[in-house]
Structures are given as C-alpha cells and as structure tokens.
C-alpha cells in the first residue's frame, strides 16, 4: 500500500512546491497564475459552493455513465450474437465518435432544456463507445475450444454467452469501463458548458467571466479529485467482481 500511495503523493507535493515557489519568486500576477496556497484557501473558504456544484456534476455523470455502460454492454452482446448486426452497426458506432460533442451539446439543450438530461446524454454518448468496443473484443476473444466443448454438451448460444464468453470478457470490459469513466468526467463538464445553472462546469464559466482565477483552479482541483476517485473506484469494483484474477495463470 505504502509503495503505491507514497510515490504519487511525493511527486505531487514536489510539483506543487515548485509551482508555489515559482509564483512567489517571479511575482506572477494572481490573475494569471494563482499560487497553490491561494487555490487551497479559496477551496476551504467556499467549501459549500464546491460541494453543492460537485454533487450536481456527480449525479449527471453517474446517470450518464450508467446509461452509457448499459447501452454499450447491450450493443456489444448484440453485435457478438448477431453477426449481421455487427457488420451493419460497427461503422455507424465509429461515426458517432467522430461527431464533436460540443457541436451536438447545444441541440441536446434545445431538446431537453436546462435539466440533468442533456448532460447525462452527453456523458452517455461519450462512454458507451469504449464499453461497446471492449465488450465485442472481449466476447470474441473467448477460447474457441471452450465453445466447441460447450456445444458438444448441447449448450445454446445464449448459455455459451452467459457461462463462457461473458465471464471471460470481464477483464477487457473493465478496461473499457475505466476509459469510459475518465471520458464521462469530460462529458459532464462539456454538457454543463453549453447550458446549465449549476455544476462544476457552470462554476468554471462563472469564475472565468469574473476573472477569479483561484476559483477556477479550485474547481479544476475538485473535478480532478472526483475523476481520480471514480477511476480507481472502477478498479476496486473490478477486483471485487473478478476475484479469480488472483488465481488465473492463463486467460481462457
């Protein structure tokens, strides 16, 4: 534990120290680059605002993430089970990722108003893709010999999916989930930039307009911390869901 937590903390402390020293020695204008101490003070002085808006962003993010993951998994399973659907749908799925989200987000606001929905949709749009791709890849990578064996036992395609392909795809699916989680933080903020009345993305715009650089940095800090916690949370869930990884010398 110590060896995994200590090095990043030391590195972080070193960088923050260098930043603080640079700003003070070079007498940088606080509007251009506030020292970490000023950011920390701002954060502590306005905890309420950050908690309120942080929770708003968190709920958009989690709703969007959950929807995106479900859609991604369903698409992945469907594409694996139905060959024709896979061939037909794959290029279009790639196409959805070529559309710049900031261009679509205003339309979502027009459709759904200043509610949680357009942000959640933005998040879902960004994170269903890595989940769908990793699910298809993972399901396709199952040992074909195992599938042959199960067919010889008389298993149905669905039974093979449930008992063999899906569990063996789990590690890959979780890689997709981690990418999706990282993207969903960006997605939520982009969704808020386009039209919102609260949330960390909204807060950023406010601070920027008012020239409160320390507040802006504090918001980024909160957002980053939230993203890191969520990212490692996915890893923790993976460890809980895939306990056999400890014993698996080979992957099936």
């Amino acid at each position: 534990m110590r060896s995994r937590v200590l090095p990043p903390l030391l590195l972080g402390a070193g960088m923050i120290g260098a930043w603080e020293a640079y700003v003070r020695i070079a007498r940088i204008d606080i509007l251009l680059l506030p020292p970490p101490s000023a950011v920390a003070l701002y954060l502590i002085g306005n905890v309420g605002i950050f908690v309120r808006n942080g929770l708003a962003t968190l709920s958009e993010l989690l709703v969007g993430f959950a929807c995106g993951v479900l859609i991604g998994l369903a698409l992945g399973v469907l594409m694996q089970l139905v060959r024709g659907f896979r061939d037909a749908a794959y290029p279009w799925l790639v196409a959805t990722q070529m559309v710049p989200i900031p261009a679509v987000a205003p339309i979502l606001v027009l459709w759904f108003g200043f509610t949680l929905v357009p942000k959640a949709v933005t998040v879902a749009l960004m994170c269903f893709f890595p989940v769908a791709v990793s699910t298809v890849d993972g399901l396709g990578a199952v040992n074909p010999e195992l599938i042959r064996l199960m067919r010889s036992f008389g298993a149905s395609p669905w039974a093979i999916m449930r008992m063999a392909s899906f569990p063996s795809a789990m590690p890959r699916i979780f890689s997709g989930l981690r990418v999706a989680m990282a993207l969903s933080v960006v997605g939520a903020v982009v969704g808020e930039w386009v039209g919102s009345t609260r949330g960390l993305g909204y807060l950023m715009l406010q601070f920027e307009n008012r020239g409160e650089t320390a507040g802006l940095f504090a918001t980024v800090t909160v957002l980053t911390a939230m993203g890191i916690v969520l990212f490692f949370l996915v890893g923790w869930v993976e460890g809980a869901v895939i306990p056999w990884r400890r014993y698996a010398k080979e992957t099936l």
């Binding site: 010999e145 064996l149 199960m150 036992f153 569990p167 080979e250």
Partner: peptide, 30 residues
Amino acid sequence: LGRIGYMPQQDLLMPWRDVAGNAAVGLECL
C-alpha cells in the same frame, strides 16, 4: 450433438469457477 460425452485435450476449466462449479458446467449446459 449433446449425445456423446466429450473430453478435449485441453482441460478448458473456467478460471472464474471453482472446482465444483467447473465440474457442473456440463450438467448446466444440459
């Protein structure tokens, strides 16, 4: 298909199932 017991060269045990669970796979397929 499904009428003759088959044991392939590779053991093909599922790493996510324990011993009893792996032994039960054939029955579950049926």
